[in-house]
């Protein structure tokens, strides 16, 4: 039982990591006032392009970089439409998901069934990896997992303790006042959306280069949507996003291991759990946020249009 618990918690980190990357990116975009429902599409584009780059070069770090770049490029479409043209953010994001799903399927058609030539291996962190329980759960993973241990506090620090972070939040809370203070709301929002694309790309690449490691059409299976949901669950806070991603990862990991502790359930019903869990979490957190008067950035989803001078 003990070993199963540790295994589930350790798997929770691995399963949660791709979602965590995507969630952090979406969190930045939303904090700047732009809702991007294209995360699923951006993740898929990242997954396939990162995988292709790794297959062609044999270097998985290059794969991660290419995935980031590809994520940025498709996010740029959303940024142009919603920030420059001010179109409906919901519909533009949906279009991005449809587009990205198609693009990844098209590009990846010759990649199906090839194993990654250069999978990430787990990286031993010396004494950290040998701490009982904690070492096994947190420090026996690959470099991309460790990167999130740095990234999450960095994101938190940037948002809450730097001038640029304040500007970004201001663009999402009160773009009019931000503009009046002499800041370029459009530029801030572009940057945030593009960062979101890069992170979604990495999240996707984690699936195709570390987790699987192979390319499968639609391999994200809704994880991009779960990332969008986790931003709400996290109340737009990076540390809570980390918690949420691992919680979610734990649910999925638990599903796979229920059999190990003697519970048999239809695999189809097991696969429903993450989605049902997300719905329940959304309901609970929305209820809680209403009571505590915390919530979304005030200008989330609204285009900012400068008044005539």
């Amino acid at each position: 039982m003990e070993s199963v618990t540790v295994a589930v918690l350790s798997a929770a980190v691995t399963v949660g990591t791709p979602i965590l990357y995507a969630t952090l990116g979406e969190l930045f975009a939303e904090r700047a006032g732009v809702l991007n429902l294209g995360v699923e599409g951006m993740m898929l584009v990242g997954a396939v392009s990162g995988f292709m780059a790794t297959v062609h070069t044999g270097n998985h770090w290059l794969g991660i970089l290419v995935a980031m770049a590809a994520g940025c490029l498709v996010a740029l479409i959303h940024a142009f439409l919603t920030v420059s043209l001010g179109v409906n953010q919901v519909v533009s994001g949906l279009a991005l998901t449809i587009f990205g799903t198609g693009l990844s399927g098209y590009l990846g058609k010759d990649m199906v069934g090839i194993p990654s030539p250069s999978p990430f291996s787990s990286l031993n962190l010396g004494f950290l990896s040998h701490i009982p329980y904690i070492g096994q759960i947190l420090f026996q993973h690959d470099a991309m997992v460790y990167l999130t241990y740095l990234l999450v506090p960095l994101c938190w620090y940037f948002l809450n303790h730097t001038a640029s972070g304040l500007d970004l939040r201001a663009a999402g809370e009160n773009p009019g006042a931000t503009d009046a203070a002499g800041l370029d709301v459009g530029r801030i929002r572009y940057a945030a959306v593009i960062f979101g694309g890069a992170m979604a790309g990495v999240g996707g690449a984690y699936l195709s280069l570390v987790y699987a490691p192979a390319w499968l059409e639609n391999m994200t299976a809704g994880r991009g949507w779960i990332a969008v949901a986790l931003v709400i669950f996290a109340i737009w806070d990076p540390f809570r996003a980390m918690l949420g991603a691992y919680l979610f990862g734990g649910i999925e990991a638990l599903g796979f291991r229920l059999q190990a502790i003697g519970i048999t359930m239809s695999p189809f019903v097991l696969s429903m759990l993450p989605y049902l869990f997300t719905i329940i979490a959304l309901i609970l957190i929305t209820y809680g946020s209403r009571k505590n008067h915390v919530g979304a950035p005030a200008a989330l989803g609204l285009a900012y249009e400068r008044e005539e001078r």
């Binding site: 599409g41 479409i77 533009s92 587009f99």
Partner: peptide, 20 residues
């Protein structure tokens, strides 16, 4: 691949949004 249609569908929606 059948995915081609989603590329076209997504692109159509992008252009409609921009056009509007």
């Amino acid at each position: 691949p059948a995915a081609t249609v989603s590329i076209l569908e997504g692109a159509i929606l992008f252009f409609v949004l921009a056009g509007e």
